[in-house]
Design a protein around this nucleic acid. Structure first.
Lengths: 383, 383
DNA sequence: GAACTTTTTTCGGTGACCGAAGGAAGTCGG
DNA sequence: CCGACTTCCTTCGGTCACCGAAAAAAGTTC
């Protein structure tokens, strides 16, 4: 599926060095399970390809000193964009796994694909120019989109709350404008990739929730992103959680998780109570200020999300549930999800389950998008 | 993970012939994606090993006639046992994928592991003797158990409703008694293996529900059985579906799927209404007779199961949901699940979703257990 | 400074697969 | 009935990814 992908174990070697699991060939032998000769050969390839560099020697452990390896960060970066329904966040991601030159601007995606394409192209062009001016090579672009994506075609599919986007060929349109290869995926998927690679590389089964104005999930199964039969796996935003609710959802049903537990829903409820609350930021501010109504609403949202995740945890039995997206910045939400999972799941499923907020915070999605782009986009000289 | 497993593509070749997808080497080339030379080599191996036989020639399609291949059914079988909380079903499964000498007897698993081991050993010994008398070689035993199983250790783990079984080493105890290698897995898992291999080999992502006195699910992800982090994936029996329920469940919670939608729950409700209903068979009989109360209860159970599966379908996005277990014999249940899924899931998830009852009926679990045993158990002469 | 350790490379496999070429056995159209 | 085309299958010489044994390289310890 990935157009490029080096010999398999080479990617693994690079990954282990990139996320800090291994710093020398000997480490790689221990961590990867490969034969020493294989590791040596792969490292040599990667050094020759300019992806790894040797950087001095480490401390001896009673024998020869290890020759330390580092990911070569001099050269290539991928541009990354994390699209939200109300904002666009951009940055440059290098092989070392850090985001540089991060910017966020307000933008309403519901305005339709035309304006969005303009803004994206403009900001990414500027970003590319700055990166090139700094001497870095821009290898491609990774985009996380807050709605269903056909990753094969690079098109948006029937996103709720965003009329006009259906079947928009964002990937190719953007690639034309930028003259760069573009990778397009769902925002929760790139978030999951980012969290997995940067924070939990050792875990094999992982559910990463993105809770913001919408609610989605990315699934890592057996160490790889799981997309499902039609690519819509992880779409929990329209699971019914409130039988009594009368609020209609954009999907045509009622009581969807998204209409009761997203930050859009919380903000609306707060406005109905007389608060000034438009954005997720406003909600977080009110919670941070200790506003009881806001805290109650966020906690209830956490319980609703937790109720859905309880089914998911029993069914999928992951090693970790990671909460990302802007709402995960609210402690009460994380606490409520935890409580719900421990209450409702089988002890066998929660026994060693890790439940925590995304460690990379607001950049996690960006890192995932950049990472994916660096890994999967074709390049001229075999990466 | 499987102790034996032939060269990978050999297993694939055998599988394609066994399930009827391919009948000649040329078919195998088309279906498997392997090179013709590779197919030829693997077929030769399998013929030499006595697993495949050539059986005459097929009809020409304008060129040389294909040399037809068949799975050699002369020799080896695995014994299989499908344990229910109230019955034990046994049979012999050959490489051709048919169950022979199937028997079912009533037995109460809650009586504890001792008596169960005796009955199992006795019936399987008799079955083995009959198979050997018929000139077949018994290669091993596959067991499906209606509760959580540690497949690495071959032990039962904390099954609800079955005190005394916790940590019982069923696999090794049975292997000692029979003098045969034993494979032990959860009943829903072996059901999923059986349905996938026998009925839907082309599908890659599959959820197979076993609805009987308990409710479990087996997951096929990427063509392979998915067990999750701790091996408890698919355990949806204790998902809360009825907030208002006061019925306590063996797990300590209330409103679990199992306490409201299992045949045990339906039978109890029918008894409360004055009907004679002890077993799943009684429930099916009443539904078959058109008894309105029974049909209503079964339909409601289907809706409850459907509500849980709706979350699962949105999250996992499978190609098919297969309903197995005794309750799947009730048409209203299948209809109710269908209705619930189409109502509650996103169109993208249900667009091409197959929802149907297990085609192998009551033998599906048996076939899966036998199949798994034949595939994964070690044998003397390299299978 | 001899005897271990640890790290890394060299070298000769091995196993699974592929692709080109060609043989074997057909059909079909004149 | 004979050549031209198809389809099926095998033979043969690769390639690729990896492994394992051995040894070289570089250190530590007593």
């Amino acid at each position: 599926m990935p157009p490029d992908e080096q010999s398999g174990s080479a990617a693994q070697v690079l990954e282990l060095v990139a996320n800090g699991t291994a710093a020398s060939r000997a480490d790689l032998v221990r961590e990867s399970g490969l034969a020493a000769s294989t590791v040596s050969a792969r490292v040599q390839e990667l050094v020759d390809a300019g992806l790894l560099t040797e950087s001095g020697e480490g401390v001896s452990r009673g024998g020869r000193r290890p020759r330390l390896l580092r990911v070569a960060d001099h050269g290539a970066v991928a541009l990354a964009a994390d699209l939200g329904s109300r904002h666009i966040r951009t940055g440059a991601v290098g092989l070392t796994g850090t985001a540089r030159d991060v910017e966020e601007c307000a933008f309403d995606l519901t305005a339709g694909p035309g304006p969005a394409l303009d803004v994206l192209a403009e900001r990414l062009t500027a970003l590319a120019d700055r990166q090139r001016a700094a001497g870095r090579t821009v290898r491609g672009v990774g985009i996380g989109f807050p709605g269903p994506v056909d990753t094969a075609d690079g098109r948006i599919i029937a996103p709720s709350r965003m009329p006009g986007w259906h079947l928009f060929a964002l990937r190719d349109r953007l690639a034309d404008r930028l003259g760069l290869p573009v990778l397009l995926d769902n925002d929760a998927n790139v978030l999951a990739l980012g969290e997995h690679r940067a924070a939990h590389p050792a875990l094999r089964h992982l559910v990463v929730v993105k809770a913001g104005r919408g609610i989605g999930a990315g699934i890592i199964s057996d160490g790889r992103l799981y997309r499902g039969a039609r690519g819509s796996a992880g779409d929990i935003s329209h699971v019914r959680v409130d039988e009594a609710a009368r609020l209609p959802c954009s999907c045509g049903n009622i009581g969807c998780l998204e209409t009761v537990a997203s930050s859009a829903a919380i903000a609306a409820a707060l406005r109905a109570q007389g608060f000034r609350a438009d954005s997720t930021t406003d909600v977080l501010r009110l919670v941070g200020n200790g506003e009881p109504h806001a805290t109650t609403l966020v906690r209830q949202a956490g319980r609703d999300i937790g109720a859905v995740l309880a089914v998911v945890v029993n069914f999928f039995n992951p090693e970790a549930v990671i909460l990302g997206g802007a709402l995960s910045g609210a402690e009460p939400l994380v606490a409520a999800v935890r409580g719900m999972l421990y209450e409702r799941c089988l002890p066998m499923a929660t026994g060693e389950l890790v439940i925590r907020a995304a460690v990379r915070g607001p950049d996690a999605g960006l890192l995932g998008a950049g990472h994916a782009a660096l890994r999967e986009l074709p390049t001229a000289h075999g990466k």
